[in-house]
């Protein structure tokens, strides 16, 4: 028996070194973000932990820097590194949440559409077409705008993430539904599904127990790429001011705050969160692209 540590593992995955590096980088960022409350030097959500007197201090490695604040402080005197770690956590949790909601909804609707076909299929897929005819950001703005109008608490730190998750998922489920629908149609025509029908199993059981496991691999691939897209959408919404509030900032909120100060020479508040965002999204995308190619038999090169 081979152990996990055997030299064969990495060659068996067969990923080029750049993908492995991207995967490692993405994992490190996600781990740091999730462990923010333990590894961040300060707690930016605790009002008592920061002082307005420390506001807008440049990074520690510049001439005027303060050794206490590695990447400097923002306009409220919060340590930028700590705020970024907490912000990345917010971004990743909203992105992950949106992917989870979109995938669950999209997979279920795609299964129904592909399995039953006919009117069910037409209804679900036309709704999807309508949604896709709106630009992503516009629709997300619409959803969060409506939510804020009818629900006064929507802009608070407790509710904003949920509104954001719904706004992003409204868009993304369509892609899952389309992919799963197509895969389900292929599987439904196969003999093992016909056998299950002849045995007399109920449709729900055939869909969940027989078809679902066979259509999941493309879903995992889309999820990786969509995670990056969702994090970006969240950042865009927060940048536009309809996302996370400044008291509980995401990376996008930080970039918006920093944006107001860029021209007064205070470049670090915008730059570092923006860099973190770019690196995270790029790393996840590289892994996602590789996964997509790997699961696409047409692109697989014979070795």
């Amino acid at each position: 028996m081979k152990t996990l540590a055997s030299p064969g593992l990495i060659t068996r995955i067969g990923a080029p070194i750049s993908v492995l590096a991207a995967a490692a980088l993405a994992l490190i960022i996600v781990a740091c973000a999730l462990l923010a409350s333990w590894i961040a030097p300060y707690d930016p959500t605790n009002l008592a932990s920061f002082d307005l007197m420390n506001a807008e201090l440049p990074p520690a490695f510049t001439a005027d820097g303060d050794a206490h604040f590695l990447l400097g402080t923002d306009n409220q005197g919060r340590d930028l590194l700590s705020t970024m770690l907490y912000g990345a956590r917010v971004s990743i949790m909203i992105g992950g949440g949106a992917v989870l909601v979109a995938a669950t909804l999209g997979v279920m609707l795609g299964l129904l559409a592909g399995y039953f076909g006919g009117k069910v299929d037409a209804l679900i897929m036309r709704i999807g077409d309508v949604i896709l005819s709106f630009p992503t950001i516009l629709l997300a703005l619409l959803v969060s705008g409506v939510a804020r109008a009818v629900f006064p608490g929507a802009a608070t730190a407790e509710w904003a993430p949920i509104i954001l998750i719904c706004a992003i998922a409204t868009n993304e489920w369509v892609q899952y539904a389309r992919t799963v629908r197509a895969a389900t149609m292929v599987e439904t025509a196969k003999d093992y599904v016909r056998a299950a029908k002849v045995i007399g199993l109920p449709s729900r059981r055939i869909m969940l127990r027989h078809i679902l496991p066979n259509v999941m691999s493309p879903v995992l691939v889309i999820s990786t790429i969509n995670l990056a897209a969702a994090v970006l959408t969240e950042a865009t919404l927060s940048f536009l001011g309809v996302g996370m509030p400044p008291t509980y900032p995401s990376l996008g909120t930080l970039i918006r705050i920093g944006n107001e100060f860029v021209f007064s020479g205070i470049w670090w508040i915008a730059l570092f969160p923006a860099l973190a965002l770019v690196i995270l999204v790029l790393a996840v995308n590289i892994v996602g692209d590789w996964l997509r190619d790997r699961f696409n038999p047409k692109l697989r090169v014979k070795r």
């Binding site: 196969k190 003999d191 093992y192 016909r194 056998a195 002849v198 045995i199 027989h210 496991p213 066979n214």
Partner: peptide, 15 residues
């Protein structure tokens, strides 16, 4: 009950 033509697709490969 029924027996199918293609033995490769008539058993669910994930079960």
């Amino acid at each position: 009950q029924m027996i199918f033509q293609d033995p490769y697709s008539s058993l669910n490969s994930r079960m």
